[in-house]
């Protein structure tokens, strides 16, 4: 049976792992290569490296970092942040990434999703979606959650699936950094509407939250950062707990 995946996310700024709350107040969380290696050894199923560097110069360093991570770890990883072209995707895949994650660029230029899928296959294109509830509607935001669009979350998710996305990474901005649990209801709706896997992101604070996102939210994978970086929930403990609660996870 396919295992539910646990995915630590490394937000990278200027070559260091950082973590903030609601996309703000960044705090240093260590060397990304060391952290990636530690997670792989602890039994994480996959990693996401998200480059949140502001400048283009800093962004160039991501290729080197992606290569170093690939030399060290024996599990898959995706890279996201500022990817706007097939050429960048090629460079990241050539440096060892399995997947790329596109976000704002997909909103600006949806064709990018199909271009990458056609060139390298749907399996390597993850569409990351940041959204928050505005009134009764979930609205997609871009540029690290700073810019609201007029796009509704579920129709957008369906659309990018049709364009060739192999996976959706959905971050609830309302839940991100709160440690009060994932956006379980929205995730359940998304998982019931889509035929591609969905990674849940935003709100992990306890082991119970992971149980809920898999059982109630029907997510295929759950992503978190600070609970892992700062040692609050060790990955092996989390897997023991999920397994005890009848959730199928990979044991190493």
């Amino acid at each position: 049976m396919l295992a539910k995946r646990i995915i630590p996310c490394l937000d990278i700024k200027n070559g260091r792992t950082v973590k903030g709350v609601n996309f703000e107040n960044l705090r240093d969380a260590g060397d990304p290569v060391e952290l990636a290696k530690r997670y792989a050894d602890e039994g994480a199923d996959e990693l996401v490296l998200l480059d949140i560097s502001a400048s283009l110069e800093a962004r160039e360093t991501i290729y080197d970092l992606v290569r170093k991570v690939g030399e060290q770890i024996n599990i898959p990883y995706a890279v996201g942040g500022g990817i706007t072209s097939v050429a960048q995707t090629y460079k990241l895949l050539r440096n060892g990434a399995e997947k790329v994650s596109v976000n704002s660029a997909a909103v600006r230029q949806p064709q990018l999703v199909s271009d990458i899928a056609n060139e390298y296959g749907t399996q390597c294109i993850v569409v990351a979606i940041d959204a928050r509830k505005v009134g009764e509607e979930w609205i997609v935001h871009t540029h690290g959650g700073t810019k609201p669009t007029e796009i509704e979350l579920f129709s957008w998710a369906k659309h990018v699936q049709d364009l060739g996305a192999g996976e959706i990474l959905f971050t609830s901005m309302d839940h991100d950094g709160t440690k009060n649990g994932f956006a379980v209801k929205a995730l359940r709706k998304m998982n019931e509407e889509l035929s591609i896997p969905v990674i849940a992101s935003g709100g992990a604070g306890s082991k119970e939250h992971f149980k809920d996102v898999f059982k109630e939210g029907k997510a295929d994978a759950a992503l978190a950062a600070s609970v892992f970086h700062f040692g609050e929930i060790p990955v092996p403990d989390l897997k023991d707990y999920l397994s005890d609660n009848d959730i199928n996870v990979r044991r190493t």
């Binding site: 295992a3 998982n191 509407e193």
Partner: peptide
């Protein structure tokens, strides 16, 4: 063949399996 409303039948088959 993807089947909706069942998380184990999504396509691509992506992740860890026995």
């Amino acid at each position: 063949v993807p089947l909706n409303h069942d998380e184990f039948q999504k396509v691509p088959h992506m992740g860890w399996n026995g």
